[in-house]
Design a protein around this nucleic acid. Structure first.
Lengths: 235, 235
DNA sequence: CGTAACCTTGATTAAGATCAATTCTCGTGG
DNA sequence: CCACGAGAATTGATCTTAATCAAGGTTACG
């Protein structure tokens, strides 16, 4: 556990004593694809850090539609909000998870950081508190961006932006010529993240392919014209 | 300035010395309706707290459509993200505001909290850092909720939810019988916040009126059936 | 009062959701 | 190794919501 904790940016670089202290009360949990990590409104236990695999955080509407708010990659944390909103409170009486989360890959490993124990540390450690601030600020920026995309861009632009972001985060060195990205999510999750229907996403990808910008083979997508794709995403 | 600073929740209850120190480098600014406080991409100076009046934080699309991310009421802060994202950095070289903001009432008073000076305080004061954490967490919850509304609910439900939230935050004691709320924003801003067009919003309000749920008179709206309105917002 | 900004209503259009039918993919067992 | 079947993805047809275009009506304020 010690080694795992050290790899989480929120904790990495802390002095050994502190890492040990934190490691003591954290718990490793393993989930398979489709397993629920927590439901919305479930009593709050603490926040999580993904160690390996992939996790989605999402909301479900009354009529069963799903919207994915975040897709959490390894070494990122999620579900800190209920903890931080109520730092004063001694007991966490009625805190609940504000969304659902689910593993979307088999053998997804996550660390549970229990609220009560961590709160005590946070309230006495400026360093950790500042790290959490940075983390939350990044999350806020991401959400702002997500809202901007959803409200000001159509499905084609959002799709292009999504592909470009995967493309740019895939650190392939030869980006000038086309390269292949491999999506870590299926169409259903991609659509739920982009705020559209599976069919609409499918059509959009087909159209981008017909226009010679990408080449789709299941979860592998060959980016033939990154420049044009970027142009679409920004328009 | 001292008295103003003390009324901002982020700072209230701090010891006098600290309040004085902060007051020293903050600057009060006054804007009229329609005045820009900052543009997107403008170099970052620091964050703001609204003292009186009303401020909107918004994004503009390429083709000129506007989406309002937040409407900031007195004594709340905005634009902290660039400060917090980069606490390590000594100089804030290339930090920019990630959205635009504008006063939407005449004589809107805001306090500018300069980034460099405040960063030094923040990095040495656990108390303030914890307060900022709570503030950001609340902001995150609000954004999550905003995204949920935008993606999972239609315009009618979003409008109902907006009216109900104004209704519930207006601490009129007699909520059982109908009561009148007075919107602080015009139709254009309300539509931009709800992610719809002015005309669609207007039609939606007319329909709710025709159904006997509300009674519209400009910015005054009489809530005739709060229960039904709430029901719509949740459906 | 007069004018400009704001709001409402009507008609039309467009984007995307939904319903329906194949087709594709991939893991499993024969 | 191949055939099968279930889930995933694509494609087509149609419908719905809300955006856009256009024209009046209201309100606020000098």
């Amino acid at each position: 556990m010690h080694e795992v904790i050290k790899r989480i940016p929120l904790f990495s670089g802390l002095e050994e004593g502190m890492v040990n202290k934190i490691s003591e009360f954290c718990r490793l949990r393993i989930f398979n694809k489709g397993d629920i990590i927590f439901f919305e409104s479930e009593p709050y236990r603490g926040f999580y850090a993904v160690v390996s695999g992939l996790v989605k955080v999402y909301k479900i509407s009354r009529d069963g539609r799903e919207h994915i708010i975040h897709i959490i990659a390894p070494f990122n944390t999620f579900a800190e909000v209920p903890l931080l909103e109520n730092l004063d409170k001694i007991t966490d009486d009625d805190f609940r998870y504000p969304a659902c989360s689910m593993a979307i890959e088999d053998n997804t490993k996550v660390v549970l950081v229990p609220a009560n124990e961590f709160r005590d540390i946070l309230k006495n450690d400026l360093n950790i508190s500042l790290r959490m601030l940075s983390g939350l600020a990044k999350r806020l920026r991401h959400l702002n961006h997500h809202i901007e995309e959803l409200t000001l861009k159509d499905v084609t632009k959002r799709t292009a932006a999504f592909l470009i972001s995967v493309y740019e985060n895939t650190s392939s060195n030869s980006k000038l010529k086309g390269s292949t990205i491999s999506l870590s999510v299926n169409r259903s999750d991609m659509a739920a993240y982009l705020g559209t229907a599976i069919e609409t996403l499918s059509r959009t990808l087909s159209r981008l392919q017909a226009e010679g910008i990408i080449e789709v083979t299941g979860k592998k997508i060959f980016i033939k014209n990154a420049y044009k794709l970027k142009e679409i995403s920004l328009s």
